[in-house]
């Protein structure tokens, strides 16, 4: 038997890959995650992306778009979709508001035909740096502060349930 015609390695041959011209063309979207820390779970992010695409464009269109979260971490997520649907995928990403009850926002940064180009772009971006300041008093409650380079400060209320998250600046804290 011609090895090229066999269906799997079980028959003694090598499975022939689909020729490049017959493969589905893909596009890769790099999206910034806000707030960048903690990283969302990739599987939970995938379900959240799928949910937002489905709710906006419906099942039939989602099947054609095939959105997949390839990876996420360090404040960025890489999402794959079918070529020609990148604009709709970007719109759907903008309508994503939470991942597993945690409020987040995705901001599409770049779209590319290769994953490598986006990985190079991530490598060129400044590394995500922040320092933890704890405890910090704000309006009578105790918070943990996450201070980013520049002005941005995120405050997370200390507690077990329904912790309030506040987004402030260094100037706001100095004014207290």
């Amino acid at each position: 038997m011609d090895p090229a015609l066999s269906y799997g390695t079980g028959h003694g041959g090598v499975m022939k890959a689909r020729p490049p011209t017959m493969r589905e063309k893909k596009r890769y979207i790099l999206a910034r995650i806000n707030p960048p820390v903690p990283d969302p779970d990739p599987k939970e992010l995938y379900f959240a992306v799928l949910e937002s695409v489905t709710s906006l464009f419906g099942d039939a269109q989602t099947a054609r778009m095939m959105p997949v979260v390839i990876s996420c971490g360090k404040g960025y997520a890489l999402i794959r979709c079918t070529r020609g649907y990148e604009e709709q995928t970007r719109i759907a990403l903008m309508t994503l508001t939470s991942v597993a009850e945690r409020k987040i926002a995705l901001h599409p940064v770049a779209t590319s035909g290769t994953l490598l180009a986006l990985k190079r772009r991530i490598a060129r971006m400044p590394p995500l740096g922040w320092e933890l300041v704890s405890p910090l008093q704000f309006k009578g409650s105790e918070y943990t502060a996450r201070r980013y380079p520049g002005q941005k400060v995120d405050l997370l209320e200390k507690g077990i349930k329904s912790q309030e998250l506040l987004f402030l600046t260094q100037d706001d804290l100095e004014e207290l």
């Binding site: 002005q151 941005k152 309030e164 998250l165 506040l166 987004f167 402030l168 600046t169 100037d171 706001d172």
Partner: peptide
């Protein structure tokens, strides 16, 4: 909201 005017 949960963000200061300056931050926004």
């Amino acid at each position: 909201g949960n963000s200061s005017a300056r931050r926004m």
